[in-house]
Structures are given as C-alpha cells and as structure tokens.
C-alpha cells in the first residue's frame, strides 16, 4: 500500500520550481550540496512518517539514470 503522494500536490508548481532555483543561484556546488542536505533533513522531519520517507527514498533512487 503506497502512501507517498505522487499526484501533483504543489500549488503554483512553476513558482515553487523558480524558488528552488533561486535558492541555489550564485552558490558554489559545495554550498548547494550543503543546503540540499539540510533541506532534505528539514523536510524529512516535517513528514515524520518513516513509511512515506522510505517510499520517497526508493522512488528517488529508482527513477532516472
């Protein structure tokens, strides 16, 4: 039973995406990597549901390359 929300859920997706890019604007790779790591930890804590987190980690790893 999957609990990770995979249907679109972010209002104004384009606006969110722009903010995400702005966050990294003009930063070094090292700075960006650190910010991303902190972001993952903050969001993971907010979600707090181990099953959802596990599904998200799996979905992230299974997609793409």
């Amino acid at each position: 039973m999957t609990r990770l929300r995979t249907e679109p859920n972010i209002p104004d997706g384009d606006g969110f995406y722009e903010e995400l890019l702005e966050l990294h604007q003009g930063r070094s790779k090292e700075e960006s990597d650190s910010i991303n790591a902190r972001l993952i930890l903050l969001l993971a804590n907010h979600i707090g549901d181990r099953e959802v987190l596990r599904e998200a980690m799996k979905a992230a790893a299974d997609t793409g390359l």
């Binding site: 990597d33 650190s34 790591a37 902190r38 993952i40 930890l41 903050l42």
Partner: peptide, 10 residues
C-alpha cells in the same frame, strides 16, 4: 559527511 555536517549545522 555532507549529511553529518548538515545535521550538526541545523
């Protein structure tokens, strides 16, 4: 190390 440091910074 990246995640470890992120935890400590936060």
């Amino acid at each position: 190390r990246l995640f470890r440091d992120a935890v400590l910074n936060l």
